[in-house]
Amino acid sequence: MDTRLLLVSHASTAAQRAGRFPDDDPLDARSLAEAEAHAARLRLAIADNAPAFVSPAACARETAAALGLAASVEAGLADLNYGKWQGRRLADLAAEAPQDIAAWTRDPDAAPHGGESFSQLVKRVGEWLEASSDGATDRTSTRPRDVIAVTHAPVLRAAVVYALGAPPDIFPRIEIAPLSMIELRRSPRGWTWWPASH
C-alpha cells in the first residue's frame, strides 16, 4: 500500500517573529488563533483515522492540538539541533560570528554552532520517512494510507530534499512558511513530492 504523508510546519512563534533560533518556545495567542483557523483546511485534506505524529517541541505539540490532532510524539521529527545558537537572535550572531553564519547557510555539512548540520538532518528525517511508510498492513489496497505529522520548517525542507534525492546544498532555496503543508507519497518507485491537494 502506498503512503500519503502530509507534513505541516508548526504555527509561528514569538521567537520566530523576533528572528531568534528556537528554544522550545510555546505558541502565543496569535499563533494559536492562526493554527485553529487552519484546522478545517486540514480536516478536508486527510482521512479522519490517519495516524498523527508530532515533534517533541512545545510549539509543534500545541499546533497539533489546535489542529484537532491527537498526535504521538516522535523524536525523529524534532527540529534541527541549533546547539549553542539555541534562543539567540540571528542578527546578533551575524554581527558576532559572520563567518560561522555564512558557512552554516552555504555548506550543508557545516555545524559551527555545535549542533546538527543540515546533511545530518536530511539523514535523520529520511530514516523517519522510511520508518513511517513501513506500517502498511493491507498491501492489496489501492488507496494510499494517510499519515500526518506536525513538525518544523527545517524538517519539511529536509523531507523534500530526501524525497527528491536532491543534494542537501539546495536547502537554502526551499522556503517553508508557518502552517505550510507539503504532501509526499511513497510508492514502489520511492518517495515523490506532490502538489498540495488541500
Rank of each mutant, 00 (worst) to 15 (best):
L5H: 04
L5M: 09
A11L: 01
A11G: 04
A11R: 00
S12H: 14
Q16M: 13
A18R: 10
R20W: 03
D23Y: 11
A29C: 10
A29M: 11
A35E: 00
R43M: 11
A45G: 14
D48Q: 14
N49I: 12
N49V: 13
A50N: 06
V54E: 04
S55V: 01
A58V: 09
A64I: 03
A65Y: 05
L67N: 02
L69W: 02
A70E: 15
A71S: 07
S72D: 15
V73Y: 00
A75T: 12
L77D: 00
D79Q: 03
D79C: 01
W85A: 03
R88F: 08
D92S: 08
D92F: 07
D92Q: 09
A94F: 07
A97M: 13
I101D: 04
D107L: 08
A110E: 05
A110P: 03
A110R: 07
P112Y: 06
P112S: 07
E116Y: 07
S117C: 07
S117I: 05
Q120C: 12
Q120A: 15
V122L: 06
K123I: 15
V125A: 01
E127I: 13
W128I: 00
L129G: 02
L129K: 02
A131T: 11
D134H: 13
D134M: 13
G135A: 14
A136C: 13
D138E: 11
R139Y: 15
T142I: 12
D146Q: 06
I148R: 04
V150Q: 02
V155E: 01
A159W: 01
V160A: 08
V160F: 08
A163L: 08
A166L: 11
P167N: 15
P167H: 15
I170N: 06
F171C: 00
P172F: 11
R173M: 13
I174F: 09
L179D: 02
S180E: 10
I182F: 09
E183M: 13
E183R: 12
E183C: 13
L184Y: 06
R186V: 06
R186A: 09
P188N: 09
A196K: 13
